[in-house]
Simulated scan of single mutants.
Amino acid sequence: MFGLFKKRGKAAETEPQFIVATLNARIQPIHRGEIYEDPLEEILSEASIGEVSGGGTLQSQSGEIEHCDVEIRVNNSSLKTVDLIKTSLEKIGAPKGSRLNVEATNSEIEFGTLEGLAIYLNGTDLDDEVYANSDFNHVYSELDRLTQGVGRVFSYWQGPTETAFYLYGSSFSQMKSLISEFVETYPLCHKCRIEKIC
């Protein structure tokens, strides 16, 4: 009888705990999986400390993504476990303003090192021939190519009146400088706007 109670107590001690990483990144669910969830799952599996158990995306009223969550189930919420998750996500590429919410300790830890740049292409006010003869895919690939070594395109969003590309890297000002000539000369980028998003 006493052994039964002891066994139940042991099971309770090993009950999984949850940590939620709220990433200040405007990325689609598919890109969230590719950029964050899959690499983090591999790290957690190798360390035998847990697994990615879910994820979510928060959208504004316009439909534009504001940030995303990655839910992590861990064996325990020790400082070592939390630090591994934090440092791993920063190595993968976490924007400034991200946070870890540790359920077991009801604590929140800020993290992230990357700065974000969003470029919004005007989808309504350019000449029809510009839209007919230009390519959004070319814009994506050029933005990614031009910022190599400093940042890259993480995701994009197509709204009713504009298309956004989201770049994250070590420096907003450097990324903006690297793409400036292309933005000024490529017809599809005319009347665009650029914003610092983190």
Rank of each mutant, 00 (worst) to 15 (best):
K7I: 15
R8L: 14
G9D: 11
G9N: 10
E13F: 10
Q17Y: 03
A21E: 07
T22L: 08
A25N: 07
A25V: 13
H31L: 04
G33I: 12
I35Y: 02
L44P: 05
L44M: 03
S45Q: 09
S45P: 07
A47P: 10
T57K: 04
L58H: 12
S60P: 05
Q61G: 05
G63K: 06
E66H: 07
H67D: 09
C68D: 02
V70C: 08
I72D: 00
V74N: 01
I85Q: 00
K86Y: 03
T87D: 14
E90H: 12
I92N: 10
I92K: 03
I92D: 11
G93D: 10
A94W: 07
A94H: 03
G97P: 12
S98Y: 07
L100P: 14
L100Y: 08
N106W: 08
E108M: 13
I109V: 14
G112H: 05
T113S: 05
E115L: 07
G116A: 01
G116V: 02
L117G: 02
N122Y: 11
E129P: 09
Y131Q: 02
N133D: 15
S134W: 12
S134E: 10
F136L: 11
H138W: 12
H138F: 12
E142R: 06
L146T: 05
G149V: 15
S155I: 08
Y156S: 11
W157Q: 03
P160K: 02
E162G: 00
T163G: 04
G169W: 06
S170N: 14
S170R: 05
S171A: 10
M175P: 14
L178V: 12
I179W: 06
E181F: 12
T185C: 10
Y186E: 11
L188C: 07
L188I: 13
H190D: 10
H190V: 03
E195G: 01
I197K: 00
